[in-house]
Nucleic acid binder design. Structure first.
Lengths: 177, 177
DNA sequence: AAAATTACGTCAACAGTACTGACGTAATTC
DNA sequence: GAATTACGTCAGTACTGTTGACGTAATTTT
């Protein structure tokens, strides 16, 4: 049973090399780094019965208060139904509130509550700590260096999403009304 | 219905700032970068009816041919049952073969077939291309800089896993027999 | 003003990946 | 000979994601 059934391919016993100039080292490091990067908040989320999806929603609603459901879907690149369940839970648990859009009353603007902001901060804290430590531990690495590299890893068409980050308190849309 | 039921928290209208020294910028960039980084292979995998889990197994079996099931579980940080389905499919489709461990016959050493190696390479190619482009686009960033930063992001206890990477063709264990 | 479109919510059905806990078998170690 | 180990497998469950369809209120087009 363990001996392969005489028609299968032969085992290759040599490790895959950097042949063809493939950068396996960084590919693998990216996997390990992201795995551990997300493990910090995962533990906190478990106490609330939340998952990674809740975290992402909470993060972006705190980063861009007043964004609409459609905008959020675009940033997360998931479907309406996927968002619906998670968003409903966050609203029911009073972490997020919806307000009718002032210009277009069909839209729902999403805002964090004090509770939602506190949780977003609690989730971000260990991640930020890990980043700071990594910057220090890895020697004379400047923050901007990492920032530029990560930004360059993002699809060019989607880089616009990153720049939507609020400079101050302004918010890109309807600060008035 | 859209007006929150008078007992809910008030909306916070200001964006979360870098208050408390939280590095939201890099946190967010890491999310976007990883999302797009994994989207390349995801498209190829879909053609085979495989998912991201298959990719990870295939990657590590190619990187460390001859690793055992237990070692693989340890690297991936998933449970036996999670691995079982995925591994079975990869074996059934002749991407991976199992050989009885020479020292301990209870163990199954995992090896890629030619087919499995080819797929691993095909999946890694676009990711490597993206990394190279990002290194170039982001200016005078050295590969080693990014490598050191990512390594520092990994939990110290788990950094040992990274170093298991074969230097050449050797393999850390039983190259003989 | 009527018709078309848009923004959102929701229902149903399903897939992939992860989990826990339990049990069985062959091989190794005590 | 008994205990332990490595692996496979079964059952049941949870989370996050998918597609497709339908309904409603609000806005835009004609």
């Amino acid at each position: 049973m363990i001996e392969r059934s005489h028609s299968t391919g032969k085992p290759i016993r040599t490790a895959i090399t950097e042949e063809d100039g493939i950068d396996f080292a960084i590919i693998e490091l990216f996997f390990f780094a992201y795995r551990d990067f997300t493990s910090d908040p995962d533990q906190i989320l478990a106490d609330y019965g939340f998952g990674r999806a809740h975290h992402r929603v909470l993060h972006f609603v705190n980063r861009r208060p007043g964004l609409t459901v459609a905008e959020l879907l675009d940033v997360l690149k998931i479907t309406k139904q996927s968002l619906a369940r998670v968003l409903k839970q966050l609203i029911d648990t009073d972490h997020i509130v919806q307000l009718q859009g002032p210009r277009d009353r069909r839209q729902r603007e999403l805002y964090p509550t004090a509770k939602g902001r506190a949780l977003a901060l609690a989730l971000a804290r260990p991640q930020s700590r890990r980043i700071r430590a990594a910057l220090e531990d890895s020697g004379a690495v400047e923050r901007s260096t990492i920032e530029r590299f990560l930004e360059a890893m993002v699809n060019p068409e989607l880089r616009a999403q990153i720049d939507i980050v609020p400079a101050q308190t302004s918010g890109k849309n309807h600060g008035d009304h």
